[in-house]
Design a protein around this nucleic acid. Sequence first.
DNA 1: TTAACTGTTGATAC
DNA 2: AGTATCAACAGTTA
Length: 288
Amino acid sequence: MPELPEVETVRFQLLGSIKGKTIRKVEVFHEKTVAKNRDFKTILTGKTIDDIRRIGKLLIFSFKNFPDLFMLGHLKMTGQFFYLEKGKVKQGGGHSMSASDFAKFPGRHTRVGITFVGGHKLYFNDMRLFGYLRLVNGKELIEIEKQFGPEPLALDFDDKLFYKAVRKSSRSIKAILLDQKIIAGVGNIYADEALFEAGIRPTRKGKNISRKEAAALAYAAKRIMQKAIRLGGTTFQSFLDSEGKKGNFRNKLKVFDRTDRPCSRCKTPIKKIRVAGRGTHYCSKCQR
DNA sequence: TTAACTGTTGATAC
DNA sequence: AGTATCAACAGTTA
């Protein structure tokens, strides 16, 4: 369930692995993953990775000498990149797996395989098939980027626009926070965490949120995601461990997935309700 | 065994 | 138009 911090971690690790590498072969194991491109394999073959950017939860790969070609990568809920080098397997997050796992690729959930010159491989796994890889040109990319609101992590992030969107909305503040057009990159986990830190009840309507509260919320989201990035993200790491051991930020969560456990501030049991169609965790005493 | 639940987002319904 | 709900899918939990 990658959100912005997880995708940023993947971006950073992946860039270190594949920047400058040239694609020798592309295998598509499941057509739906690349459904938007009929000639995905042919176009990609021979291209050299130049850079990987990110907007919200969307990865944007660019290629040397082809300034009008981009590969979008969205992990949605269960997408993962695995990079294989000389018998070692590294996930997008850069954690090595045991050598015996090498045989698992391509596996049941492998949708696309990319082989680089030199034999290194990049696999895209996606159990639930919501994720995708898609080739676009510059014009299409600009249209897609327009659909994203400002990044809370951007240096020039300004809560003015956020409050402007919040104050006129009758949706719940949680639904607004999850809307990628308003703020890019916040998913269910960090939405609950940010609302807790800002002391705001997720069910409150946007129009009833003050400027001060909106600012507190936006900066809480920013701080939490910065911290999560420092810790290598929350969620995707749990994919590595079949025993269910959680990622580093998991231990820092104050409300998400802590139903009925005592609030870290006031010991009131954390409640779980449904807001905007999503499981929502909050403290009924600390959040008003 | 079956049903409910999980998570993101585009499509559909109101 | 703005908002709420559903569907895409597959695996886990109740």
